[in-house]
């Protein structure tokens, strides 16, 4: 079942989709998705839709939504920042918890690409996360792979006259840009998170190579971490074979980790 939902954050409407399985045991998992910088709730190659359909078949609830300023939700991209994305995520998680009420469930956060910049900070909040999934995480990046479209020259947004920077077909504000280019304590927070963690990498993804090496070398020191490399896959798993493997591995891991809860 694919149920559209909408909630209000700061007087603006956020639009999302809930995938709800036809059959589900009490305590079954709920996966919450956070995507990258200028993505949307469908994402490239409809990967989020495909994951949602598989989650439904596997007894997992899956939640995907557009942050304010992205996709179909209200506000413009130049008005938002990482801070508002975290606010939006917390509001959607609160909505999910409200829907579940007293029903036991295990919450998993899924960060795709630089969606980890939202997913990992969420762990510091009081939301009782049972596990973290990272697809193509970028904790470290070599300069040569830094996106060449990072803007350098400011412009004025034509209506508000706010100072903004052109970024692809969008404008981005100064605060958001600064938050985006400076890596914070995400890796340390990831290491410290004591619950199970799954990281999936593409075998042909130079952008995550430095992160893969770092995580893989230290995997024994990172509590509850599992790494999967999908041979030949690119950063966005732009091949149906890679997408299928990514989704199957993730769903199986979520089921394994939350098995105890499902049996209750």
């Amino acid at each position: 079942m694919q149920v559209p939902f909408q909630i209000e954050v700061g007087c603006n409407t956020i639009l999302g989709i809930l995938h709800i399985p036809a059959k589900r045991a009490p305590g079954s998992p709920v996966v919450f998705m956070s995507y990258g910088l200028n993505g949307n709730r469908v994402d490239n190659n409809r990967i989020s839709v495909a994951f949602g359909r598989k989650a439904e078949e596997s007894g997992i609830i899956f939640c995907r939504f557009d942050y304010r300023g992205l996709g179909v939700s209200e506000k413009d991209f130049w008005e938002i920042s990482m801070t508002t994305k975290i606010e939006d995520s917390l509001a959607v998680i609160e909505f999910l918890k409200g829907c579940m009420q007293a029903e036991k469930h295990s919450l998993f956060i899924l960060g795709f690409s630089d969606g980890l910049r939202i997913a990992v900070p969420l762990l510091k909040h009081d939301i009782d996360v049972s596990g973290l999934i990272l697809w193509s995480p970028i904790f470290f990046i070599e300069t040569k792979y830094v996106d060449s479209s990072i803007p350098k020259k400011f412009e004025r947004e034509p209506v508000s006259k706010e100072v903004v920077f052109p970024f692809k077909g969008l404008w981005i504000n100064q605060k958001h840009l600064r938050q985006q280019v400076v890596l914070g304590t995400e890796y340390e927070d990831f290491r410290k998170f004591s619950k199970p963690k799954l990281s999936v990498f593409g075998g042909n993804d130079p952008a995550t190579l430095a992160t893969f090496k770092q995580i893989n070398n230290g995997v024994s020191d990172i509590h509850g971490a599992k790494n999967i490399m999908i041979p030949d896959a690119d950063h966005l798993y732009s091949g149906s074979k890679w997408t299928q493997q990514l989704i199957t591995e993730t769903v199986n891991w979520v089921k394994d980790v939350s098995e105890g809860s499902i049996d209750k």
Partner: peptide, 10 residues
């Protein structure tokens, strides 16, 4: 998707 490239249609 309905939002199009760079959320053009939105």
């Amino acid at each position: 998707p309905m939002c199009d490239v760079d959320y053009f249609t939105t």
